[in-house]
Amino acid sequence: MTGKRIMSFVLIFVMVGLTIYYTFYGAQGWYSPATGQEMLLRTWEHLKLVGIAELLAIGVGISGGLLITRPGLKFLATPVTAIANVGLAIPPLALVAGVSPFFGIGPRPGIIALFIYSLLPVLRNATVGIEDIDRSVIESARGMGMSKFQIFRKIELPLALPVIVAGIRTSTILCVGTAAIAALINAGGLGQIIMRGQSVNFVALMLQGALLTAALAVTLDLLLSETEHALTPRGLQLNKETE
């Protein structure tokens, strides 16, 4: 854990440092890199895309996952997990491009594509997290006289929480990468700088976008894995360590 933390910090430091270097000293002949102001704006746009899509996906995904694991709707759990797994095999580029003929270009279709893509891991993990809870645990809770709602709130939710957060982490990382691709349909964000650099064939511009996107992904991964660790119940943590 600590090893990964240190390596992530070093990597983030190097990537952000290089981005700053290119922003101020990257000019070459007639080509100039993106200004600091634009970089900040694009980063903000990127975060906004990821944030909106991810919040929607978390809301829909978790409530959907909790809903289809209720006794009456259980038959839905297996097909939904299967569909989510197949959907995740679809290339992000195909999804982003496939959305554009129907919804046009701009931030809105970008968010639609991002939402669809980031919904799948959240939905899958919420379903699997609750499905995988040991039946005997729930049985003993019932034996202790807990009501259905109490079982849900005090047993199912805390036990499934680490798996759900792991799903949110996967989905956020995918979302950051897909948001960069969404610049192809003019959704804004750091991908816009990469695309511009690519079309004028100017390396500094491409690197500005790419390095900062990568730094963003590593940072979010670090933050979310810390959250995941903090939310795992103490007993399960010990279990993991002794394994």
């Binding site: 390596m7 992530s8 990382i173 960069a180 990469i194 491409m206 690197l207 996107t213 990568a214």
Partner: peptide
């Protein structure tokens, strides 16, 4: 430990960003 951590971090880097970084690196 180092290799596995590196693999984990590597997987979080977006593919488009990695492709873009490949161009000057290989160049």
């Amino acid at each position: 430990n180092v290799v596995v951590n590196m693999a984990e971090i590597m997987l979080t880097i977006p593919s488009l960003a990695l492709y873009t970084m490949m161009i000057p690196l290989l160049g």
